[in-house]
Simulated scan of single mutants.
Amino acid sequence: MTNQNKIKLNWLTVIILIIFWGVCASFYPYLPDQVPTHWNIKGEVDNYSHKSVAAFILPLLPLGIYLLMTFIPKIDPKKENYLKFASSYEKIRLATVALMVVLNLFTLLVGLGYDINISLMVRIAIPLLIIVIGNYMGKVRYNYTLGFRLPWTLASEEVWNKTHRLGGKLMVAGGLVALLGVFTPPSMGFALVMVGILLPIVVTTVYSFLSYQKLRVDE
């Protein structure tokens, strides 16, 4: 990926954030004093916050994620390796920020009175993010921040690469399983999301351990 393309992706993320904050500010005068900000596993509202929190505090999360993911590569002891997967990193950051922006906007729209099934939106958004990240996880190179940071991957770059190639594929498969939750009741849907998240982590962790043990035997 050329430096120019990296800059374009970064600016796209920045533009999304600027538009997002502009929308939040424009919505603020029309929001009721109390806005739904949390839903239980059944999709029922179980917490309200003042409109200033919904319009200006909660939106700090996507901005915080952007700033954190911008700063981390600069202090990571393996920061030179980020250049090897710069394209994947930029796309993962963009997808993560976009997800948080979309969920925040849905929250504000509910506050404005629109009938939006937040539970369904979450069951769609999270699996899609898992699939996107999984698609690029196999390209993530050895670092101390992003990826499957396990004792065995951090101890061997070879194990790191093998683990991330498998883990990325399992994340995509897990995301597809989680998407099945769209067609089920909310409680079952969230159960499928958890399976889609946790199963790839468990299998990848075991694979990483076994790969490291095999590498030690071969040596």
Rank of each mutant, 00 (worst) to 15 (best):
L166T: 06
N143C: 09
W160A: 03
L105D: 06
N5Q: 08
M171Q: 04
V203R: 10
G147P: 01
L192D: 14
G196V: 05
L109K: 11
M137G: 01
A55P: 05
T2P: 13
H164F: 02
R149K: 06
V159Q: 01
V53R: 10
N3F: 08
Y30G: 15
A98N: 07
A55V: 03
K74D: 01
K42V: 02
I116M: 10
A155S: 03
C24K: 10
A191S: 15
V101G: 05
L112H: 03
F27E: 06
L180I: 04
N135L: 10
E44T: 08
L215I: 14
T153P: 09
S49E: 12
L215K: 15
F56N: 12
L103F: 11
L150Y: 14
L210M: 15
L68Q: 01
F209S: 04
V102W: 01
K84H: 10
I130Y: 05
G196F: 04
P186M: 09
Y207G: 13
L103G: 09
K42Q: 13
G64E: 07
N5I: 09
L99K: 03
I201G: 05
N5W: 04
G22D: 10
N117G: 07
F85G: 01
A86Q: 12
Y48D: 06
L17G: 11
T70I: 08
V23A: 15
A95Y: 06
T107A: 04
R165A: 00
E44N: 12
L179H: 06
S208I: 03
L210W: 14
K84S: 05
K162T: 05
K91I: 15
N135K: 11
N3I: 12
V35D: 07
N3K: 14
P32N: 07
K162S: 14
R165K: 00
G189R: 12
N47D: 13
V202N: 04
L83C: 04
L12M: 15
T184F: 04
A95K: 08
L31V: 13
L198I: 13
Q34D: 06
T204R: 10
A54Q: 12
S187R: 09
F148S: 12
L94C: 06
K74W: 02
R165Q: 00
F183I: 04
I116H: 07
L94D: 00
G111T: 12
L58V: 15
A95I: 08
M194P: 02
I124H: 15
K42L: 11
P32A: 08
V195N: 05
L12I: 15
I16V: 15
I15L: 12
L12P: 01
A178G: 00
G138F: 05
V110E: 12
I15Q: 04
P36H: 11
S211A: 10
V206A: 12
R93D: 00
C24S: 13
R93M: 03
D76H: 10
G64N: 05
N5M: 11
T107M: 09
A54W: 10
G181I: 01
V35P: 01
L176P: 00
L150P: 15
K74F: 02
Q213P: 05
S208R: 07
L60Y: 03
V122Q: 13
V140I: 14
M1T: 11
